[in-house]
Design a protein around this nucleic acid. Sequence first.
DNA 1: AGACTGTGGACTGTATGCAGAATTGACGCA
DNA 2: TGCGTCAATTCTGCATACAGTCCACAGTCT
Lengths: 227, 227
Amino acid sequence: MSSDHLVAPADATNLPIARLTLHEQIVTRLRDMVTDGSLPSGQRINEVAVGEQLGVSRTPLREALKTLAGEGLIELVPGRGTVVRKFTLQGVADALEVLKALEQLAAHRACAKATDAEIEMVLNLHRRMMDCYAARDRLSYFKLNQAIHSAILEIAGNPTLARMHQMLQAQMKRIRFIGNERAEKWAGAVAEHEAMAAALAARDGAALAVLLGQHLDNTLERVRDAL
Amino acid sequence: MSSDHLVAPADATNLPIARLTLHEQIVTRLRDMVTDGSLPSGQRINEVAVGEQLGVSRTPLREALKTLAGEGLIELVPGRGTVVRKFTLQGVADALEVLKALEQLAAHRACAKATDAEIEMVLNLHRRMMDCYAARDRLSYFKLNQAIHSAILEIAGNPTLARMHQMLQAQMKRIRFIGNERAEKWAGAVAEHEAMAAALAARDGAALAVLLGQHLDNTLERVRDAL
DNA sequence: AGACTGTGGACTGTATGCAGAATTGACGCA
DNA sequence: TGCGTCAATTCTGCATACAGTCCACAGTCT
């Protein structure tokens, strides 16, 4: 047997291979199902039905539901199971307010400590996002948008901050997704992103924080009638 | 039979009786066990052992562990179970930084919209806490301290904000508890609380935010050698 | 007719059982 | 003595089984 088999194949990274438990996989699947609407908000989740649909037993499914409840995506009603959380306008406003505080903190930190390579990476994401806007590719735009915000949070280098942000972002994902449907709203968001990219390139944390704040304030307006 | 038996006994409230699932009870028990140190940080959790200790089977216990993992109190290691999360100095600093952002947001909101009764309620907690300090009752002081911070978060009237704050506060609880052991540190914290109470009484959100920020910055120093 | 009560089915909450991965400790070897 | 290997044991991950709760519908009584 040639020793080639002992070295990593060409496409392998050196990262430890992902050891996903069933529980974790279910968590991400359910998160996606909430985002894409196959689990409508307010819907009661039937454990046996969803379990069969995903091909898993109730045990890991229930564990996943507990995790998602901790993230605030669903709610546990004792004796009556779980329902997908329903957002009121006020609830969204509240969440966006917290998101704003977190992202502004991240903005200051990120601008202060980002390497040139990291900034270039974000700007690259931004350019690709703009291409998607030009092509009116809403789904790709949306994913890159989230990636940019997450990247800034990563660069800030505060794992706790990143965790909290991800939780909130997951909650808002569904609503934001339906939010940018109207063309003029989308255009507005794009303009804001241009300004934010410029502030980041200039490492102007204060300016970036202000722009992020405005962006999120406007987000509330954009998603207003998506409820 | 006298109709007296049909009315509620003297000590009964009219609130719906708390329907706690086993899962929820286990969550709070485990949280306490992490705080009081009976589950030392870094310790690997043996499901059968802890299950027997609490008198529950592994299923609800595992569900509780998933919840706590979502809160960041413990970590799930695939194939190897769960361990109580270990904090580095940097990790605590990161968490306190986020806590600061959240509490400052809450400070502004709370000062803006609190009723007189709510402010009086917090000031009352504060006075009771000072009594505990005078009596050197560390445990009661500690609980009232947490209660004050939580109360301000409640008054802010943003459930999402309150949720995030509670998660972080739960993480820091253990460390803070060992933090105030030295008398001079305790005195410093007390002085800061006096100033914060005054700012709240004056409904000066900006001042309260600044004071909270300093308080948390100092908290980091106070807990520094508790790691 | 309307309201209340009892019963059956469905679903959640908890316990237990089983298979596979991980750890420990002994043993052999250098 | 130190290190690597391998087997036994322990523990986790998942599935299944059982028990208790909720809900809807039908029957009964006023």
